[in-house]
Design a protein around this nucleic acid. Structure first.
Length: 272
DNA sequence: GGCCGTGTTGTTAA
DNA sequence: TTTAACAACACGGC
């Protein structure tokens, strides 16, 4: 389920359960998720490692240890949680990190197996993070800076919001939500956005993600366990998944289109 | 049973 | 350099 707010929620939940603990052993059931490293590489690199911090960059979960850094990406269906017991709880528990002490297993639960784990020894550059863009929750973006980055870009603004090199952490759901909030047609060429539209976009990005994060702290409270799937969590979307339903602003029906083989939802009347 | 859709992103090709 | 298409995968819904 993870876009930035969900990943941030995961990090906040698992961080206090991981920092200061040691990894005793690792187990990977789908070696492809670790490529190009092998489960053996990882076992050797991590054995006895002390977890120093757990943070987030874009949609990556960053687990720092005294021997190196793990970058975990949940992609479409990954979940990460800490639980008791050693044996895999379900066939979807693809990677297990056995910790010392009680509550002893960090688990990557991932039905579609698209999630990834990579290990970088201390000092090695974290290449997947190298080109990441602004942190939406922290960076205050100036209109001029955004305008320069969008100049001569003919790609639709919705697709550019999904490009992690601009803002890091926006995904398909919140891209639609952000553009509705900003009143911008998702098909607009990025370079065509005028000053006021850029300003609205800059305001809407953190606004929507922060709202989702606040919700993530409640609705997704049990996010960090396999049973914690919230049933009601889609109800808060203004446009995503709302094809045919009335626009919250003008009551006219929300439409669905496809951009780059992915659904986009918007209001034809409120988003110009 | 088969096709379509699903929260991501690397790779490949044009 | 920019962009578009596709692959990686499993599963639910129709």
């Amino acid at each position: 389920m993870p876009e930035l707010p969900e990943v941030e929620t995961v990090v906040r939940v698992i961080r206090p359960r991981l920092v200061g603990r040691r990894i005793l052993r690792t187990r990977f059931r789908i070696p492809r998720q670790l490529a190009p490293q092998t489960p053996r590489d990882l076992a050797r690199a991590l054995r006895g490692s002390l977890i120093r911090d757990v943070t987030r960059r874009g949609k990556f979960i960053v687990i720092e240890t005294d021997t190196g850094t793990l970058l975990v990406h949940l992609r479409m269906t990954g979940r990460l949680y800490v639980r008791n017991g050693r044996e895999p709880g379900s066939t979807y528990e693809r990677a297990l990190f056995y910790l010392e002490g009680q509550n002893g297993t960090l688990v990557l639960h991932d039905p579609r197996t698209l999630g990834t784990v990579r290990f970088f020894p201390t000092g090695a550059p974290l290449t997947p993070l190298a080109d990441m863009g602004w942190e939406p929750l922290r960076k205050r973006v100036r209109v001029e800076a955004l305008r320069e980055l969008l100049a001569r870009r003919n790609v639709a603004i919705k697709l550019l919001l999904l490009d992690q090199r601009l803002w890091a952490g926006i995904g398909n759901i919140y891209a639609s939500e952000i553009l509705w909030d900003a009143g911008i047609d998702p098909r607009r060429a990025a370079a065509s956005l005028k000053q006021p539209e850029l300003a609205r976009l800059i305001a809407s990005v953190p606004k929507i993600l922060k709202r989702a994060l606040r919700r993530g702290g409640t609705t997704l409270r049990n996010f960090a366990s396999p049973d914690g799937i919230p049933g009601a969590y889609q109800e808060e979307f203004r446009v995503y998944g709302c094809e045919g339903e009335p626009c919250p602003s003008c009551q006219r029906p929300i439409v669905r289109i496809v951009q780059a083989q992915r659904s986009t939802y918007y209001c034809k009347y409120c988003q110009k």
